[in-house]
Design a protein around this nucleic acid. Structure first.
Lengths: 331, 331
DNA sequence: TTGTAGGCGTTATCAT
DNA sequence: ATGATAACGCCTACAA
């Protein structure tokens, strides 16, 4: 039988209302009763029932974090950023992986909100359409989208175009002229912006853009990298470098396949990825890549959502963060 | 203003008790009122307030998942196993990363349980002592420990000794005789069992165990692998193979450092890891390793904990799962 | 088959 | 500074 406010009240000779005020550090309590109540609470090993509290305050104390796929190390890294903040002491994280679920992200969010399970939500690299995202603005609980810029919704994202420009300019600076670009058509990825960055760098240096140096993959796994390398190999021009906005895993797939064909990296083919996943540092040669500030995005998201929940922030905010170019061995 | 049972009741001309029974699919409701109530609920876009429901039923509908470190791909993979089951539809996952938190896993579990935030808990590769683990058995809500065998507590774990034996015997079968063993002294890892498996394999084949071929690392990162390789290199005997119970990341660190020194893998040094993390497949050469059935452990844990919560399972269970030896290129 | 009434443990609004 | 009392929204005997 768990200890309740009443139990404490009885022993202390006060009412549960008083005890509640003590527990919640409300003012206007005599030092005497405060001390007494606190001691009894401690002696009885009292823990407040969060559900009852939630019913009275209409807050759950939880923040929903909705991710498309836990297998993604990008997502996991953002998750780390979310929990690593020291602000989240009073909120717990309710995690949802929508992969393979029939409920859409928007439906899930709506349900969580209406069922009063969450006080706020963070959406990581959501794959839903802008139209569906509109739902999020309409709910009672605040939300923020990570790794994607979207109109009229709170979000935190990186400047993909600038990141891609950095990478491409680096390659150009190394003397490369035939630079392939490997993009994924997977939904939700800001591929358009990255290709724009690639083109901008070329334009700046007066290098003509060649459509036949842009390759598409349907997904972003190792195998996709291997197969795209085959296409590169049999394309009209053999590039001396390849920039892979599709992500580090695809880039690693390309490197593996290239080496299998006896092509030296970076001597014959320089490779630059996007994301900076943990494996980027482990592979041989280690992967030069465009780092996304994943921890920072998570940190910003959780802080922002808590500010919203607690009424410290109003309006909507869009936060852009810079990428960082990480030079390793592959380029 | 959210829709409540009362709102529906009013419109339907019944009481909220009746509506509640309909919503919860209780028997003894006339088809007519059931239909009517359901229709109104749908029209009004009703969602039950989970907090109020929780207060009445004293269930939160959440399962706590406590992990020591989200950065571990092992942990993340188990997490995937937990969510991938199709049984968890009615439970949400409350995630806690204890890294850097002042509250111990045991304290956290106790608090969550007493505050009635969770109906059950899953502990992944906990680093707490057996003594502390005793707390878990005493709480009202059921718990299960993943990736660790512990007395008198529900758990699911792998046969580490057999896995290590497989790996070592494989190396012996390839003709290796001087086989180093790299173990981590990090808490919580079942290193003792793995070393025992290594020794057993040696013993079976009549190869003398050499203490000076066993190397310890304090942690399990890439850098630890690099530094341990230096020690191997300067040790009394240069092994032709190394088995790394400390995990794949350390194994990869060793490979990187070895190649840097111009040592061919596997030609001059065969390397076998433990875990089978995603990067194992990406590195060059790809890593031969002992796979732990991470998804299966997660799946077993969630199913087991739900069975416990819903009273379908009693007593305590210890489930052992087999490892699988994965041959790739590094050995 | 449905209504009545009480309770789950807190918080919050009044009084006092 | 503290006590009464009424929510919060739902569930569940028990009564009708």
């Amino acid at each position: 039988m768990p200890v309740t406010l009443k139990d404490i009240a009885r022993r202390a000779g006060v009412t549960s209302a008083t005890v509640s005020m003590v527990i919640n550090n409300k003012p206007n309590i005599s030092e005497a009763t405060r001390k007494k109540v606190l001691k009894i609470a401690h002696d009885l090993n009292y823990y407040p029932n969060s559900i009852a509290r939630g019913l009275a305050t209409s807050r759950s104390g939880a923040i929903g974090v909705i991710v498309p796929n836990l297998a993604s190390s990008f997502v996991v890294r953002v998750l780390q950023g979310i929990k690593s903040t020291n602000r989240d002491l009073n909120y717990m994280m309710l995690l949802f992986d929508t992969l393979g679920k029939k409920e859409s992200e928007a439906q899930l969010f709506q349900r969580l909100s209406r069922e009063r399970r969450i006080d706020g939500a963070i959406l990581i690299s959501s794959t839903v359409t802008d139209a569906e995202l509109a739902v999020f603005g309409k709910e009672m609980v605040p939300s923020i989208v990570v790794a994607r810029k979207c109109p009229a919704l709170n979000c935190v994202y990186v400047n993909n175009e600038a990141g891609a420009t950095d990478a491409t300019e680096y390659l150009i600076g190394k003397g490369h002229r035939a630079i392939a670009c490997v993009a994924s058509v997977k939904r939700g990825l800001p591929i358009g912006e990255r290709i724009a960055g690639y083109r901008r760098a070329l334009a700046r240096k007066g290098i003509p853009f060649r459509e036949d140096l842009v390759f598409r993959t349907t997904d972003d796994g190792l195998a996709d990298g291997a197969s795209v390398f085959q296409r590169i190999l049999h394309g009209p021009v053999m590039p001396t470098a390849v920039f892979v906005p599709a992500g580090d895993i695809v880039a690693i797939g390309i490197m593996k396949e290239a080496r299998k064909k006896g092509i030296g990296i970076p001597s014959q083919l320089a490779v630059v990825g996007f994301d900076d996943i943990p494996a980027a540092e482990m592979v041989e040669p280690s992967l030069t890549t465009v780092r996304q500030p994943k921890l920072e995005m998570g940190d910003y998201a959780i802080n922002m959502i808590i500010d919203k929940i607690e009424g410290r922030a109003a309006g909507f905010r869009q936060q852009e963060l810079p990428t960082k170019f990480i030079v390793r061995e592959s380029a």
